[in-house]
Nucleic acid binder design. Structure first.
Lengths: 201, 201
DNA sequence: TGAATTATGTTTACAGCACTAACATGACTT
DNA sequence: AAGTCATGTTAGTGCTGTAAACATAATTCA
């Protein structure tokens, strides 16, 4: 809702310059466009048009299109992590299952964004390094570690995480590409993501 | 290697017209380009240039770019199915594991093609319908059914297939996007794709 | 065999794209 | 108030996918 007044916009916290907080507006509009179509069909000029700014203004905030896409992906990743975290709060087996459901549901609700997250050529964010708390991998690791219990070996935990992540990710991707009917998604998730299938203990 | 002579090219079986078998050349060159870069960076004009034909000649064989991409995806799918079939020939648990490895290895060897296969908006080929024998889903179903044995229920088989497919697909996708180190790919596959994890019987 | 038809290709043209260079202006610093 | 820097604009380049009109080789049929 970035105001277009000719004075500084007080509502936008980060930095508001002589035409509003363009950087945030770009991301906001970019995400909106991602909800409507694929990432490939997203056009810088179109985003600029929607905001009401010249096409080249974008380059004051992002060196090229890929950078904007990367920013959108980062935003999406954070959102996904937030939803996963909330879903897994219950903890234990139930929390774990809820986390899986949240992962797949996010993919179904934001297909283009989800695909974008996992297609930025430079690995979106190294799950181990940058912002650990905002990584699905990290969240999974925590939950799976909890489930495994203290007796589990490191290798067991590692395999458990990998298996769980691959399972939900594969399920999400296959549904997105229409290889698996997405109608009874929740039921499928429950069938497939049973804790026992992780062979933790 | 389609000859460019002004007489009919005898080597190309399907249909050879007054400038060679352009349709095959387009697919061949398209696949070659996919080995070198992503599907998004693939350009019709570039392909035409490489073949030595005008850019618009393509439209005599494909109504638009997406159609050519769909043809490339179909070609890739067939190739993947062929490799899976060969890998699974051993049968039993070992054949099943080999099939999984083949799936992931294919993805690693042909990242752009693999992604393309699972991103054509109209589901590449409905695994149940069109060319069943050329579908990874169908191949998996056979193998998993074998493993499950005669006592397994239909639901168990269905879940087993889903779980196996999601597992290898997710693993492949996560590796492609750099979320999982692809170095020790084969070891990871073996860790994750253990038959027991399918909970068949 | 020769004429008509169809399949395949070409040239030309257009609008949209990402991106660069040169310039303008508003905002912050001193 | 002057100068600098951050942020915008307009104009232009070369790429893209694709449509329209035209050309020619291959095939069909009288």
């Amino acid at each position: 809702m970035t105001s277009k007044g000719n004075t500084v916009n007080i509502n936008t916290p980060k930095g508001a310059y002589h035409h509003g907080d363009l950087r945030s507006a770009l991301i906001e509009t970019g995400l909106k466009r991602l909800e409507q179509g694929s990432a490939e069909s997203l056009s810088l000029r179109d985003i600029a048009r929607e905001i009401g700014v010249s096409a080249t203004a974008i380059y004051r905030h992002f060196p090229d299109k890929d950078s904007l896409l990367a920013a959108l992906a980062a935003e999406g990743l954070a959102k996904l992590a937030r939803e996963q975290k909330a879903a897994g709060m219950a903890g234990g087996k139930q929390g774990f299952a809820e986390m899986g459901r949240a992962y797949v549901r996010f993919a179904m609700r934001h297909p283009a964004l989800f695909r974008l997250i996992y297609s930025s050529l430079p690995p979106t964010t190294d799950p181990a390094c940058q912002n650990p708390e905002e990584s699905p991998g990290w969240l999974l690791r925590q939950t799976v570690s909890d489930l495994a219990g203290p007796t589990a070996s490191d290798a067991q935990r590692r395999t458990g995480v990998l298996r769980a992540w691959a399972l939900v990710h594969g399920l999400a991707m296959l549904m997105l590409s229409g290889q698996i009917a997405a109608k009874d998604a929740d039921k499928l998730i429950d069938e497939v993501i049973s804790v026992d299938s992780l062979k933790l203990g």
